[in-house]
Amino acid sequence: MVSDNVFFTLIIGTSIFGILIAFIVVFIIIYQKKQQAFQFERETFKKSLLQTEIEIKEQTLSNISRELHDNLGQVASLIKINLGLIAKDLPESESDKINESVDLTKHLIHNIRSLSVSLKSENIARFGLIKMIEKDIERYKSIGGLDIDFKQSNDMTTFDPTKEIFLYRMTQEIFNNILKHAQATKVEFYIQKDKNNITFIITDDGIGFDAQQISIGSGLLNLKERCQIIGAEFNMQSKTGKGTTINIELKNEFES
């Protein structure tokens, strides 16, 4: 009787213990699945939020571009015409300053136009990504005193227009960072474009930084997030005093 009881109790005890453990194991598995689903939802939400934010930003930039072109550009043109008229009425010795102002105004109009072009994302479809980048590089050279060595493969493959806008804005962000923080004198920018991939490699000889110390909300983290949205790979190498290299690689799903 006693041995029967012992056996019975052992069975019951072990079964209950087994059930408790099994319950916890099942709970952990279900919880981890829920966690993954929750994480996926969060990521999707974050992406759509960022996408909306970028669309709003693009719209704002487009409005500013139109304002620059239609308003400021026109006013600058009128100033140039008026200065030209004033210069005609003045003796040659006194018109030098006016002519100098006309030249400055021409330069101003050129800068306004090129800025207006770079702000308007529709121009990427009109002129192409590479052409737009080339225009920007000219502008960076003139305002930043940078020696920019720009090379690109001559492949004319087109990519998803939205992704091209992202790539273009990312390039602008990178160059803004170089101009503002890097204290660089020379930049090498290489775009390799073929049917399957587009790769941007931007290397500067600036002061560099500790890649571990990037603060939340910085432009570099924004770049990373933008890359995630378009499915591009983002790599950055930097060391204090040894410049920075940024590598962005995007697979072309548009062509295939």
């Binding site: 009881n5 012992v6 109790t9 916890i24």
Partner: peptide, 27 residues
């Protein structure tokens, strides 16, 4: 969950356990 799951079961069968000193010790 584990502790009270075990104690609940053991004390629910308390009278039964105490029929055998071996089982009591095991419990």
């Amino acid at each position: 969950f584990v502790f009270y799951g075990i104690t609940f079961t053991i004390f629910a069968l308390y009278n039964f356990f105490y029929k055998s000193s071996y089982i009591t010790s095991y419990a």
